[in-house]
Design a protein around this nucleic acid. Structure first.
Lengths: 379, 379
DNA sequence: CTGAAAGCGCTTACAG
DNA sequence: CTGAAAGCGCTTACAG
């Protein structure tokens, strides 16, 4: 308040008068202040104002301060449309989301977007949201946003191998970073969680608990990272001499409902299973829900694990053992790297962020060994 | 494919040549096609091209078709920065979200945003995301986005009575619609769920089941709709001659953790409670989680209900009785009304969408009556 | 019905 | 170090 009053007092009569006449104006809805107004008030050219605005070092400190003072006093805000039209950048990034039903209500994408938006905001960028609806893809909306100058770059979430249109970004003409997935083919930039390492840790853990008959509730094998997890599951089992049967693989469609249905299938086809590895938390929640209803005790009779470590994982009953994915950090990093690309970074963007196991209460030693252990303890 | 070839064939040699020379250009990164290029190719003025672009009825059908043909053939896309700079609109809307920790990973906001984005896309609008961080508010970022011409309007989510800055929108100079909340004071536009009606249905239901000692896990009383629910809770209890004790009210902070803690407080201070009314689903999940761990049987010993009907409500154990909020629809409607406002609609935007009760398995008749009933059945 | 011209509010060479 | 001028790619009165 004191500050505000002081600023008012500091205005010279002339400046105040000009500012007033400008802001009152003759037009009906008083025209906003422009570079020209600022230039007049500061007795410099519009070019000089523009240079002050853009921190051009060629402007003398004295002039810089004089202009800045007028800018502060008048509250001048450059029109961003004019700035972008004249310059090369829009200072806007697009986030492309898959067109899932009510897709934003998803903890996985939410974490990624949070990271992206936080960092974008800090770096002075706005973020627009796009959904990859069929019409958007068909009409090449993903190219349109660059050509029509909506954005400088794009972050692509929830991509998979069937998204052939991504090949159009292989020439790097339009900056784009694939978020939390990668493609061996088109040479696209990406930032991804280390799914393989996470899966290895999880499988090691389950095997150490004595589990051998482990069911897999997976989904979307058209996603590279999803295949990575499936491959690790298979290799690790084979590593201990177990060849997973076809019936051990069940598609859970990445949803709670799918997870529940897959768990039902698994129990029916392979009743001797002792653990279920779900490749995301949502399917694990569905599976737990189903098992609870069937009166199957978790983890005493069956261990269940997830993948993601979304917020809800800690609030199931029993709480979920899972692999933590640094999704927020992936979002942050992808945003940073994309902006570097926009400004001419030429090295390929390709980073893999570490994941780690989070042990909670949905896992236990395989039942047979538990009995052994109790006998030993009873001795 | 056939279509594409046909289009190529249809190009006259002249047009193809011009289009080629334009797209190859002399500049390094071939300059994109502009209105001028299209005008030349179609032998009309740029004004005419512009009018065709904007469906101006003054253009003759013949000219319109000729120009449109060139546009289609060249794949011309108007530069949106230039369009917006010359016209009044940006065709962009802002969604203002509260600055919650990792705020996007939230089913409540996700549903609203889904509705908003779907409708915005259909109407040719882009959506930018803003978080109401302290710095954003302090620097009046919410005004900046209009003055700097980033957006035509704003949708405000997660607002509450402490957001005094919203008063700046009371003159309707900048189109803004409050989403799923309302303010009696500043005359702001809003679209909201009918929380009071939902609460009434829920309380009627609980009372009909014989519950009288009903705990309330609430939160954020600075939100008008939250107060509405609390008031209905109190009135309905008083309506059957019950005066809720202070200990029956517990703050659950709208989170799972808060809900769990509030449930613990409630049980300790008021062990004879037979039902818990949580004012959102997340707190209900937390409460259920806590009760399950304590070995309290739901709904046999205690009924638990939520509010929102988010996806997870159906996947708790037991599944959650709750009030369904049409959040997706609220988002759609708010987006529509905002765009109408942008284009001069003058009537106040103020709509209240119906809510309804969803009965699942977390509720039952009050235990004492259950015993009675069993005795009756046993006769 | 159509065109020539001014203007939107900036930035960027180009002079000096 | 600073200014005058051209230009970014559109739309919008204003003529005709």
């Amino acid at each position: 308040m004191a500050q505000f009053t002081k600023t008012e007092d500091e205005l010279t009569p002339v400046v105040r008068e000009r500012a007033r006449s400008i802001s009152l104006g003759d037009e009906k809805p008083s025209k906003p202040i422009s570079v020209r107004d600022v230039a007049k008030l500061a007795n410099v050219s519009v070019a000089t104002v523009s240079m002050v605005l853009n921190d051009n070092p060629r402007i003398s400190r004295a002039t810089q301060m004089r202009v800045q003072r007028i800018i502060d006093q008048t509250g001048y805000r450059p029109n961003r449309l004019a700035q972008s039209l004249s310059s090369r950048y829009t200072q806007v990034l697009a986030v492309l989301l898959p067109a899932l039903r009510h897709g934003f209500a998803d903890a996985y994408f939410g974490e990624l977007i949070s990271g992206i938006c936080d960092r974008a905001g800090k770096l002075g960028y706005k973020v627009i949201l796009e959904q990859a609806k069929p019409e958007f893809i068909r009409s090449k909306g993903y190219i349109d946003i660059y050509e029509r100058r909506y954005v400088d770059g794009m972050l692509c979430l929830g991509s998979n191998d069937r998204h052939h249109y991504l090949a159009e970004f292989s020439d790097h003409r339009y900056p784009m970073v694939v978020v939390d997935n990668y493609f061996s083919q088109w040479g696209l930039d990406f930032i991804v969680c280390d799914y393989a390492s996470g899966a290895q840790q999880m499988m090691n853990y389950l095997l150490q608990l004595g589990h051998r008959k482990i069911g897999l509730i997976h989904a979307a094998q058209e996603i590279r990272t999803a295949r990575d997890v499936t491959e690790v599951y298979q290799q690790k089992l084979q590593g201990v001499g177990v060849e997973p049967l076809k019936s051990w693989y069940q598609d859970g469609k990445f949803t709670e409902e799918g997870g529940a249905a897959a768990a039902a299938q698994l129990l029916e086809q392979e009743p001797r299973i002792t653990a279920i590895f779900c490749t995301n938390d949502k399917m694990a929640l569905g599976a737990i829900h189903y098992l609870n209803r069937q009166g199957v005790r978790i983890p005493q009779q069956i261990s269940v694990v997830g993948f993601d470590d979304t917020r809800h994982a800690a609030f199931v009953n029993p709480s979920l053992t899972t692999v933590h994915l640094p999704l927020y950090e992936v979002g942050v990093l992808a945003c940073e790297r994309l902006i570097e690309r926009v400004h001419g970074r030429t090295e390929k963007v390709a980073e893999r962020l570490a994941t780690h196991l989070v042990v909670r209460e949905s896992t236990a030693m395989v039942p047979a060994l538990q009995n052994e252990m109790e006998l030993l303890a009873g001795r």
